[in-house]
Structure formats: structure tokens, C-alpha cells
């Protein structure tokens, strides 16, 4: 029963949080990589609510989670679940910690290794600048049209065992943000994230990225 503590799963977990965070900061309608990169370069901070729907064959109806997301350039992230589980993932200045609310308050999960964090933060740094092409872990395809999409396909066998592909759907409205991020694991099993109340370049207190509560 030695789970939670190995580098692989922790790395993948944080990697995907990274993808979500970058998805949230990619604003606006875009039909080429240059536009995305240009838009991304103006982002200083983002805050948003998110809902997460988990669909899989064992569930007749999706498992819904909700939470808040905060980002401040260059590398501060707070990924917080408010229901049904209270959990907070903090990334700040190369340091990453995850906490889950228990009977005695928030307790730090001991599952994220330093090595994993460094790799993931490097990836996040690239994505936050809109650099999806040439990524070490994913191949990226941009599909334009009325509902533009970015499709990320894992390059590594280890990662593809976990994720079949990721589909980021951008809002057809130029002024709007992305509409959803769908992480497809296999047939019938996927996670759909939707962002609402997205605030761009607003003031976010430093304590948000430092303190759990």
C-alpha cells in the first residue's frame, strides 16, 4: 500500500494542474500559435472559479468538484478545491506543497518530490509564455474554426498510459476566455474543467500563495 509517495504519480498530478493553469491564462480567440504566445505574454495574474466533472464507467452521474484558482506571474499558483474535498495546492518560487483538510485542520500531503516539482515548473514556465509547440511532454495541435481547440497528445509512453489527450476549447467570442479543458484518459473516462468569473491582471495578495487558510 505504498501509494501517494512516488515521484511518477505526483509528477503527473502536478503536470496536469500545470496544464490547467496554463489553459486558464490563455485568453482570447486564437487561430495560430503566434497569437496565443502574444496574448499570453501580457498575463500578470489570473483568478477564477472552476468546476470539475469526473466521468467514468463506474459512475452513473459525474462526480462534481468545485474550487478556486489563482496565478501570479512568474510562478505562483494556488489551486484550491472547496467541495467535496477541501484541498489546496500551492506553488511559489519553485516550491510546491499540497494540503488536505482533515479532522485537525489542513495537513500537508507528503507525496510531491522536489525533482517532480522542478520538472513541472519548467513546463509551466514554457506554457505560461504560450510555448506549446516544441514541448518535451506533449505534441500540440491547434484547430481553428468557430470553436477553436488546442489538442495536446502525450509524447511519452508513461504519460500516455495516464492521459490519452487533452482538449482545450477556446470560447468563440474574442473577448471571452477558454470555455473548457477536457482531459481524456480512455474511452468513457474523462475530466472536464470549466472556468468562470475569470479575472485577468487583478490584484492578488501574496498571502494567497503562501498561506493555506
Amino acid at each position: 500500500m505504498r501509494f501517494i509517495t512516488t515521484k511518477g504519480s505526483a509528477k503527473r498530478e502536478v503536470l496536469v494542474v500545470g496544464i490547467l493553469f496554463c489553459s486558464a491564462v490563455m485568453l482570447g480567440w486564437a487561430d495560430n500559435w503566434e497569437d496565443i504566445e502574444k496574448e499570453s505574454s501580457n498575463i500578470r495574474s489570473v483568478s477564477a472559479h472552476f468546476s470539475q466533472e469526473k466521468h467514468m464507467h463506474i459512475l452513473t452521474k459525474a462526480l462534481i468538484s468545485k474550487g478556486h484558482f489563482y496565478f501570479r506571474a512568474p510562478d505562483s499558483v494556488r489551486w484550491e478545491y472547496t467541495s467535496p474535498v477541501k484541498s489546496v495546492l500551492l506553488m511559489r518560487k519553485g516550491d510546491i506543497k499540497k494540503y488536505t483538510l482533515g479532522r485537525r485542520g489542513f495537513v500537508e500531503d507528503s507525496g510531491v518530490s522536489l525533482e517532480s516539482m522542478q520538472i513541472v515548473l519548467q513546463e509551466i514556465s514554457k506554457w505560461s509564455r504560450g510555448q506549446f509547440t516544441g514541448n518535451e511532454h506533449f505534441s500540440a495541435t491547434l484547430k481553428g474554426g468557430q470553436v477553436p481547440k488546442i489538442i495536446l497528445t502525450p509524447k511519452e509512453k508513461g504519460l500516455s498510459a495516464m492521459i490519452s489527450r487533452i482538449v482545450i476549447t477556446l470560447s468563440p467570442d474574442r473577448q471571452a476566455t477558454i470555455s473548457s479543458v477536457k482531459i481524456i484518459e480512455n474511452k468513457g473516462s474523462y475530466t472536464l474543467f470549466e472556468f468562470t468569473d475569470v479575472q485577468i491582471n487583478g490584484e492578488i495578495s501574496e498571502t494567497i500563495f503562501r498561506e493555506v487558510e
Binding site: 501517494i4 452513473t60 462526480l63 474535498v85 488536505t100 500531503d109
Partner: peptide, 22 residues
């Protein structure tokens, strides 16, 4: 019956982790 739980795993030495179990 179908159950959905959060599962907190704790090992000797204080190592812990939380997952969701169906």
C-alpha cells in the same frame, strides 16, 4: 451499492496522502 469516499492514507512516521475512492 456504490460508495464515493475520500481516502486518507497514513503510514508510520507521519506520511499521509489523500485520494478519492469509488
Amino acid at each position: 451499492y456504490r460508495f464515493v469516499h475520500t481516502i486518507k492514507v497514513a503510514f508510520p512516521g507521519g506520511r499521509t496522502g489523500t485520494v478519492v475512492g469509488v
